[in-house]
Design a protein around this nucleic acid. Structure first.
Lengths: 347, 347
DNA sequence: TTTAGCACTCGTGATTAGTGAGTGCTAACA
DNA sequence: TGTTAGCACTCACTAATCACGAGTGCTAAA
């Protein structure tokens, strides 16, 4: 598909205009613009050709033109020039990452919020997979005779805790011994391998030292059954209400259902990990409810070969350029910020 | 205000009907009902009177009648007979509380979900205030030379954790000693008093045993600065989209804004703690955005004098009877379920 | 190749008329 | 005296019509 320079210009201006106004763009209004020195008739001819190529559409026979999905695709592939962020935006971003925050979740959540607030779209952030994180310490805190809290701390500072019922016949000394064994055996084990290791290696050891070891193993293995999905962090879940394309409650509901049932979104976001910026427009999302939105995802690597991703969900009529710039900046900052949690592992 | 039996009947039927259909109720459709043996003309006369009393309204001169806020208020105060839940509902509730769940948060979250799912309204649950919970154990897990995780476990099994920077010059032995001191001094202290006690009692002690104790105190006091607001748990946040009164995106947005900014809702919910079931209809919520909704709150006591509350937010045209029954049942179950966490404290 | 001009299309908003569900009032009835 | 049948009236809602204007496609002239 070869476009003349003039066609490129017109396409670009139409899409930019539509992104701003959400209104079909007519030839006359275009011809009035400064950077368009052609008459409306000329523009009409070009529009006709662009429509034939499938880059533009009409909402009805005598309406102005609207970008098609293919048009957006062409736009992001060929017409998007990297655009520097405004100073105001930059300084706003700086300010989040300025104060050294100490919890991963906190950084991630705040990134999601700032991202949605700056774009007016919905943002989704997936922290680095913590299944690979290694156990730093295991603690058991008895609450009373029957139950206790098991706590697992990872090398990244993530804390998992779960309450469990103490098997009968186990005395405090048993528990103390157990904690010692667990720490000896499990420190350094990645979370994914925890359950396996528990049954295979630790079980034997416990058998020798602890009464009722099998019940205890059972209880503890439960605890180590850490959820498969990492948690998605959202910002501006409601922002899509502000988009004119979702002025209809039914449409809104369909979209919200998908957003809330995170399992649809999860693979779309997860998949991106490690491959730069990815843009999915409308039907490319392979989901009926997402056919009028675009999802832009960016992955950010953290030290140690892992990565997380952040995403913006907006109408197909999205400010691609700005969103991409923002994602680029924030993913880099996030990389840096989170890497400080990881790079201290090995000390 | 005295109503005849017939007026009571008619008012009741009108409100019941409107709650079901969301449509203004006309005299003719009423007169066709089995339990209404009067002609439409008679009903019209009664309606006229009920309107004069401010219990009914018209949407326009020749429309059917709609309950006014005052009408709903009368309805819940005088016409609501406690209604037994359907077996299906009961068994569904049983099933959540059947399997003994071990985390407070889990129970609370699941209650919120079941409540919203059964009513199709939005539910909000506030767990028992954990500021009064007492420290059971304090742990410090060093992650590397610079940072460590502080963990506080309460007697109810609640775990707070926070990362902090280790003041320079502190060695592992110092930390170990510090943990010992903290446990000695703080076990049994309610969370609210923690910060105070830290500065007043523990500081002196640490001074004697730990290098750089002042930095450490500073760092640790930070950690103990536990958020003032307890967390609200929501179920069915989006359910209001299904109500015809929020078919308009602007209305929906106003409502959602208030729901999301929890600080408006918090006092409304919190306030109820300890005073049975409370119903706020429309403007009684004292909030412009909540003028078309009703909030029904129920508090549930847990052993030890504390209490939490659960609430249902729905349109003023809410199934009051059903919601009240559900809240009654679930709040009792919740009382029981959560009390098991608390009553084992003292053993 | 570009553009001015013109006929044509179609969404939008205002206006009108018809329909039906509802009311209030009056007069007759039990 | 309370109840009801009957009737005129109101008003939201829908469909139909119209004028308007922003837009198009096509043709012919520059």
């Amino acid at each position: 598909m070869m476009l003349t320079d003039r066609q490129l210009l017109i396409l670009q201006v139409i899409i930019d205009d539509f992104i701003r106004s959400a209104q079909p763009v007519g030839s006359r209004s275009l011809s009035k613009k400064e950077d368009i020195p052609f008459s409306s008739a000329t523009i009409r001819n070009e529009m006709y050709d662009l429509e034939e190529m499938g880059l533009l559409e009409k909402t009805h026979t005598s309406s102005g033109r609207v970008p098609s999905e293919k048009g957006y695709r062409f736009y992001v592939d060929h017409l998007l020039s990297p655009q520097a962020l405004k100073k105001k935006d930059m300084s706003q971003i700086q300010s989040i990452f300025a104060d050294r925050i100490l919890e991963i979740e906190n950084v991630v959540q705040r990134s999601a919020e700032i991202l949605s607030q700056m774009t007016n779209y919905t943002s989704i952030v997936l922290g680095p997979d913590h299944h690979e994180n290694k156990v730093k310490s295991v603690q058991i805190i008895p609450l009373n005779l029957e139950s206790a809290i098991a706590i697992i701390v990872t090398d990244t500072g993530h804390v998992e805790n779960k309450r469990f019922t103490i098997p009968p016949g186990l005395n405090p000394e048993d528990i103390e011994r157990m904690v010692k064994i667990l720490n000896d055996k499990l420190t350094g084990t990645p979370l994914v391998e925890l359950q396996d290791k528990m049954y295979k290696e630790v079980a034997l050891f416990l058998k020798r030292h602890i009464a009722n070891y099998d019940l205890m193993i059972e209880a503890f293995a439960q605890i180590m059954n850490i959820p498969v999905h990492d948690k998605l962090f959202f910002g501006g879940k409601m922002n899509m209400m502000n988009q004119p394309e979702f002025n209809d409650v039914d449409k809104l509901r369909m979209l919200m259902d998908v957003i809330d049932r995170e399992d649809y979104l999860y693979p779309l976001i997860k998949e991106t990990s490690g491959s730069g910026i990815q843009i999915r427009i409308g039907k490319e999302n392979n989901n009926e409810a997402l056919k009028d939105v675009s999802l832009i995802t960016a992955s950010f690597p953290v030290i140690g070969g892992q990565s997380g991703s952040l995403a913006i969900l907006g109408p197909t009529r999205m400010e691609y350029s700005r969103v991409i710039s923002l994602l680029n900046v924030i993913s880099m900052d996030l990389s840096k910020a989170l890497s400080t949690f990881y790079d201290q592992d090995d000390k």
